[in-house]
Design a protein around this nucleic acid. Sequence first.
RNA 1: GGCCCCAUCGUCUAGCGGCCUAGGACGCCGCCCUCUCACGGCGGAAACAGGGGUUCGAGUCCCCUUGGGGUCACCA
Length: 495
Amino acid sequence: MTDLDHRAVRVRFAPSPTGALHIGGLRTALFNWLFARRHGGSVVLRIDDTDRERSSETYLRQILDGFRWLGVTFDEGIEEGGPYGPYRQSERMPIYRQALQRLLDDGKAYPCYCTPEELDASRKAQLEAGKTPRYAGTCRRLTPEERAAREAEGRQPVYRLKVDLDRPIVVRDVIRGDVSFEPEQIDDFVIMKSDGTPTYHFASCVDDAEMRITHIIRAEEHLSNTPRHVVLFQALGAPVPTFAHVPMILAPDRTKLSKRHGATSVDEFRALGFLPEAIVNYSLLLGYAPDENAELFTLDDLVPTFELERIAKHPAIYDVNKLRWMNGHYLRTLSLRRVYTYAEPFLKAAGYLSQNPGDDEIALAMARIDAVRERVATLIELTDGVSYFYRSIEAYDETGVHKHFKNPKEVAERLRYAAERLETVEPWDLEQTEQAYRGLIDELGISGGALIHPTRLALSGRTVGPGLFHIMVLLGKAETIRRLRKAVQWLEARA
RNA sequence: GGCCCCAUCGUCUAGCGGCCUAGGACGCCGCCCUCUCACGGCGGAAACAGGGGUUCGAGUCCCCUUGGGGUCACCA
């Protein structure tokens, strides 16, 4: 183990492409990345796709694409290559077979012909008796004749690791300290399935050994499996890596994250209009506290001081509310250019932007985004927030009508004056429009709100939004006046 | 059920024996700013799961209880 300390740090993130990359997986990947960067080591992205049934190329693409979007990079992996490839377990079958053969030759593994039914029955019985189910070891004691007989029957065996322990297995975990497991907890477990593919435990350990992984940073759900892995590394004659089991992220109902909990995957958050900066920052904040009170940070900020020891031991429940707040924070503090880039696909999808917007179109969009971004939390809301700049108003907000279009006749008259007054405004900017309005308000001897609120409703259809004169400028003179007149008509029809 | 991990405001957390009448953030409530909504600023309510020890002294160490989570597959 001490020889590990002298080797360059090598960590891996090994997702199984059987589902989307969720926020917990992302955080684990980020911890790996941070640890590698902190110690000048390498991160490898390995794909655990030994389950051919459930693995899909679609999920794999999604995961890869998600990391790209988030700006998370790997040093070795299925796309970047590297000296320890292939990095896809489905392409490493010969390696597992060789590893098994070595174990067989050393007498450390043996074929097992028990049927699933037999095993199941035995397991159930033990479970009911309140014991940890263990494989009885029947096939371990098979004579060559018995073995040959079963082969002759055409039975395809699984292969089990021969586990003989005379003392507890101690897992050295950086986050939790030493965790000890009694020998009777670990039986002769299966390492190769009857179809010739390795089990997760086997593939994972063989690869970690072959790829010279020094630290295994993964989710806590694997802690209970770890003594098996320790035994496997030893059987393979490989150094045992240092472990760090990071706590899980739970849904608000305190159970494991799943589809029924709404958005939990990176893709979903992305579609909902969350920014990479916020997703990365927030997921890290769940269980990691860099400094006393630091909450807003980037991945790079964390590198110089990152320590696995600072990761929380207890599971965290994620809170969309705080993510929303954080997203809003990035929406209003990131450069306008960047926010525009993130918003662009949303605006295009809504039909507000053309497929290849010109400079003027982009400049106007940016100005509109800038006016709205400090009052929204997501890109979806941002898109909604600028909607009335791009399409005419289909309806006036109901409570707004109640409040500001209360006396149709009176309001119509005021808005007509306003339209007339605005005709004369030149240049059409913040100062001139406001001056014109203030003047009119004075002349009419009314409160500012009495003219401003109905105008906002007339121009945007809403009661909330950017400052009124900002709206006017961003809408343009002609459109502002057109909407005012339209409101006048609407009001007169109701007077 | 066996085994393993965990336990500070509703949520994320700071705290590694005295600096804690427990700090910060989100959310919530008030006030200020103000043409609305936000943003921002100021203030407030809100937690050491319970019980035993150890110690001059325990949120911090130990034990038990309770609670939560994980794991016990030819799934990863």
